[in-house]
Write a protein that binds this DNA or RNA. Sequence first.
DNA 1: AGTCAATGGGGTAATTTGGGCG
DNA 2: TCTGTCCAAATTACCCCATTGA
Lengths: 65, 65
Amino acid sequence: MDTGDRLLTPGEVAALFRVDPKTVTRWAAAGRIGSIRTPGGHRRFRESEVRALLEGELEKLGETR
Amino acid sequence: MDTGDRLLTPGEVAALFRVDPKTVTRWAAAGRIGSIRTPGGHRRFRESEVRALLEGELEKLGETR
DNA sequence: AGTCAATGGGGTAATTTGGGCG
DNA sequence: TCTGTCCAAATTACCCCATTGA
């Protein structure tokens, strides 16, 4: 499985959780989710970590998507 | 199987059923409806599941829309 | 170089949560 | 048993505009 290194933008993560991109930024600032910074200061998130958070919740619904 | 449907907020689900958002929260807490949590603790609901529940009840009334 | 969508930062509404009460 | 409401605290959404990314 090599899906672990792909980076997601704040907007992509926000869409997965159905929240505002700004909210994802706050999660990063609060340390709830790890984030990488571009030289320009924009945040990027590891897909593996986001998937883990999301699917960790989805499994409670009995679906594998 | 790809059930990649959107997620709904408590308020949106409440509007569909014409109930108070608090009631939707109780449904989730009682396991009557599946729910996932944002890292901040807010609930999100699967549109497909909500629709299924809603349509299922509407059919009992012989309604198509 | 120049366009345009997305992001960051700051500040302010709106929503959600959880408990308890009726 | 199920639902609506009041409350305080926490989380999230929307507004601005300068900067970054593609």
